[in-house]
Design a protein around this nucleic acid. Structure first.
Lengths: 193, 193
DNA sequence: CGAAAATTTGACATGACTCAACTGGAGTGG
DNA sequence: CCACTCCAGTTGAGTCATGTCAAATTTTCG
C-alpha cells in the first residue's frame, strides 16, 4: 500500500532516496480506509492530517448559510488532500473533506511531515507540489474572473477528463461555481453544436 | 532602499541573519524604478524576475479575446510580485504586470533566488509566503464558488481596506470578477442600507 | 481652465438561479 | 424477478443578478 506513495515521490523528485529514507517514510504514514460518505475532516475541527490517496475519490467543500455545499476541490488517486491553512496554522477548518467512493489513504501528521522535510527527495517533492498548486490556483482564479461558465467547463474537461468518469455532474457544476441545472443546459448547448 | 526588504525578511522569519547573509541579499537584488503604466512583465514573455515592492502600486492582469483586462492581483508596498509559473518553469507568461503608480522594486533572478534559499531566514520566509499565498488563493476560490458579488466586495473591504485608497474602483471590480457598473450599484445599495 | 479618467445612472439584454416536475438508472428488499 | 426508493440528470417557467451600451456627472491632474 505504501508502494504507490514511494513511487509517487520518486516520480516527483530528482533526488535519490536511501533505503533508510524509504523506511522512515513508510513508518510515519498511517494507512486508513475511509468508506464512502465518511469524513476525513469536518468544519470546525483542526485538520490533523494530510492524506495521500492510494485508491478512491474524495471531495473538499464548504457549506454556506443556506446549507448549500460548494465543492472547492475534487481528488482521485495520487492526490494530496488536506486543508492547508488548518493543517499548518492549527486553526479550525472552514471546510469538510469526505470520501465520495470507498477510499484508501495514507495519513501523516504535521509533526511527522516537518521531520520528513529533512529528506531531500521529500522536500523537493513538497516544493514541486507547492509550485503546481500555485499554478493551478492562479489558473482557476483567472478562469473565474475572465471566462464564461461554458469556457470553464470546457477547460475543466480538457484538464481533468477523468473527473467526469468518477464524479457526478452536480459536483463538477459546484466545482465550476454554477448550479447543476446550468451545467446540464451548457452541456446540451455544446452537444447541439 | 534595501532596508525595507531586510526588515521584511526579519519580520517574516524566526531565523537570525548574519552580516554576511544580509550583504549577500543586498548584493543580488537589483533596484529598479518602474514608472506608472510601464510593464514589469508582458504577456508572451518569460518572467525573468521576482520583484519586491519597496514603494508604489502594481497590478497583474490577463487580457481576454475581446481585449478586456481582468485583474488577477493588486500589489502595494511589501508585496512580492511575479508570475510564478513563468518564473519557475521558464515558460511564456499569460499575464501582464505593470505599475499603477510610480514604483520602486527590487528585482531578483531565478538563479539568485535559488542561491538565497540556502540562507535559513530567506528560506523560511519563502515557505511562509507559500503558505500565505496558498491560504488566500483557497479563500478567493471559495469566495467565487460560494459568495455573491456583494459579499465578495465586503470581504475584500475588510481584508484589504488600503487597496481602495490606492486603486480605482474599476480595478477592484475586475479583481472581484464583476464590471465597474455592477460594483458601483453594489456600493450604492450598501450605502442606502 | 481643460482634458482625461473614473464613476454613476438608465434602459435593456442575457446569463444564471430557483423551484418544480419529470425521466431514467442503480441498488435493495420482498 | 418485480416494485420501490434513491440519486442523478433534464427540462420548463418565472425571477433575479449581472452584463452591455450609451450618456451624464464628477474627479483628477497637468
Amino acid at each position: 500500500m505504501h508502494e504507490s506513495l514511494i513511487n509517487y515521490i520518486e516520480r516527483h523528485s530528482t533526488q535519490p532516496m536511501s533505503r533508510e529514507d524509504i523506511e522512515q517514510i513508510k513508518s510515519v504514514f498511517l494507512p486508513k480506509k475511509i468508506r464512502k460518505k465518511q469524513y476525513l475532516l469536518q468544519e470546525g475541527e483542526v485538520c490533523k492530517y494530510a492524506a495521500f490517496i492510494v485508491k478512491g475519490a474524495m471531495r473538499q467543500y464548504s457549506v454556506d448559510d443556506k446549507g448549500v455545499e460548494h465543492v472547492v476541490q475534487l481528488y482521485l488517486e495520487d492526490w494530496w488532500v488536506t486543508d492547508r491553512e488548518s493543517f499548518t496554522m492549527l486553526t479550525p477548518s472552514a471546510f469538510n473533506i469526505d470520501a465520495w467512493e470507498d477510499t484508501e489513504v495514507l495519513l501523516i501528521s504535521k509533526a511527522d511531515s516537518v521531520e520528513l522535510m529533512k529528506i531531500p527527495a521529500f522536500n523537493e517533492m513538497g516544493r514541486i507540489l507547492d509550485d503546481k498548486h500555485s499554478f493551478s490556483s492562479q489558473k482557476r482564479i483567472n478562469a473565474f474572473i475572465s471566462h464564461s461558465a461554458e469556457q470553464r467547463y470546457i477547460d475543466f474537461l480538457t484538464a481533468y477528463p477523468e473527473f467526469l468518469q468518477r464524479f457526478p455532474q452536480h459536483l463538477v457544476a459546484s466545482y465550476l461555481g454554477i448550479t447543476k441545472e446550468t451545467l446540464s443546459r451548457i452541456r446540451g448547448q455544446i452537444i447541439r453544436k
